[in-house]
Design a binder for these strands. Structure first.
Lengths: 234, 234
DNA sequence: GCAAAAGTGTTCTTCCTACACCCATGC
DNA sequence: GCATGGGTGTAGGAAGAACACTTTTGC
């Protein structure tokens, strides 16, 4: 990669397409963001989202999944396009259009060694440092998107382990909405959706009494999506 | 522009970025789409959305507004990014990533001569012919988007003339949702939003009695957006 | 036995839905 | 005077919001 950090003017002779991943996780009651400290020029040492140029022979979406796999070791992660960042002057080095993609991962699944090897770190969403280029904007846009999206799609489940408790699910939604929810109303609402399967196990890590574990009934959810179900939770 | 129509294999050595516009209008109770018949190779004579490569020194959004102005003569049109079409094989000629943008225009405002000069035509949304590349997919995606979006943002107003009647507005929403609405409930709901200003004029073109004209109160709408208003109409 | 989190029901209010008739006017 | 589209009100039901106490169990 060329080092443009010392040139103020760089002729822009061709177009590049990149993709940047806004990677969310959920842990200890907080939404987390995976970012990394650049180990190469340009912008060495600065915090940045994880991204890559899109290769000539790969789909934009493939590029994003490739990046995600390189960093976390995970495949088939939930990922959706956020938007395109296409201002002519967004990157002082290249004329580069970047397609932001947000990903939701189960924070216990990823490959910790791989993440460390790449210099990546999880940051609490409320403590994200200054990022390079327009990456802070991307994070804000992605947050706004998942806050809105969580109202009509059960994306929250992508952030939880396969088995989870209802209080866990509630803490996740509270982290997404930045708002405390009433536990009685919350439980009533999520159970009324009929997409949770109650298991015979309890999670005793957060209380003496223990909370029942549930699984997400993906088949049932697909049926509901087709019939226009609404997952609004207030 | 190079003609690739007779070459099956074209080496793809660089990335292009384009934008394609899905332009909607509303007329005679129907949603309309503006498409054009290509007058140049490649794909001469085929129906296509209106698009352009993004220039090295322009923003992606600028490129879309430029295209829109070239075709319709309109500036400051309501336009939003739809999504990126980034499959490596989506265009047999170039390696081209296209950013779809949907636009809503007031069908009486555009420059008819300009549209004709470019070989563009309005098609009823239910009778869109086969389009080149993945353009039919773009249209379907854009339709799905505005159907969803109309539930929480008053985008409908972008498609109506400045002054409109409530029955007109209702027919628009019926066209968007593909569903008949109850006129009493519809009127009650839109008036309860407090974003319509009743005028002292009537439109007598569709009935002997005439229907009162309204204007959209943009200032009031901005206030409501900030406080998290919901425009759901069923 | 007590601390700490899990789990449970009811009432009130609001909003959506369904539904039918009179009004104004040009011909 | 009649045909045509414009305009209005009400009652029933569903869903959201507010709200407090009992249960379980490890220590």
């Amino acid at each position: 990669m060329v080092d443009f950090t010392e040139d103020l003017y760089v002729p822009k002779e061709r177009m590049y397409v990149a993709t940047d991943c806004i990677i969310f996780g959920f842990d200890s009651g907080n939404l987390k963001l995976l970012i990394f400290k650049r180990r190469v020029k340009p912008l060495l040492g600065e915090w940045s989202l994880i991204g890559s140029f899109v290769k000539l022979n790969e789909d934009v979406e493939e590029a994003a999944q490739r990046v995600l796999k390189e960093i976390t070791g995970l495949e088939n992660v939930f990922m959706e396009e956020l938007k395109t960042y296409g201002n002519a002057d967004r990157d002082p080095g290249f004329r580069c259009v970047s397609i932001g993609q947000y990903a939701l991962i189960r924070i216990n699944d990823y490959d910790k060694e791989l993440v460390e090897k790449h210099g990546a770190h999880w940051h609490d969403i409320s403590e994200v440092p200054d990022l390079v280029l327009d990456h802070n904007q991307m994070v804000q846009d992605a947050l706004a998107r998942i806050r809105r999206k969580a109202r009509y799609k059960p994306i929250g489940f992508e952030l939880l382990p396969e088995k989870f408790t209802i209080p866990q699910l509630q803490r996740l939604y509270e982290a997404i909405y930045q708002k405390e929810l009433d536990s009685r109303n919350f439980r009533k609402k999520v159970l009324s959706l009929n997409v949770l399967i109650k298991l015979d196990e309890k999670d005793k890590t957060t209380s003496r009494r223990g909370a029942f574990l549930y699984k997400f009934d993906n088949k049932r959810y697909q049926e509901l999506l087709k019939s226009g179900y609404n997952f609004e939770i207030s």
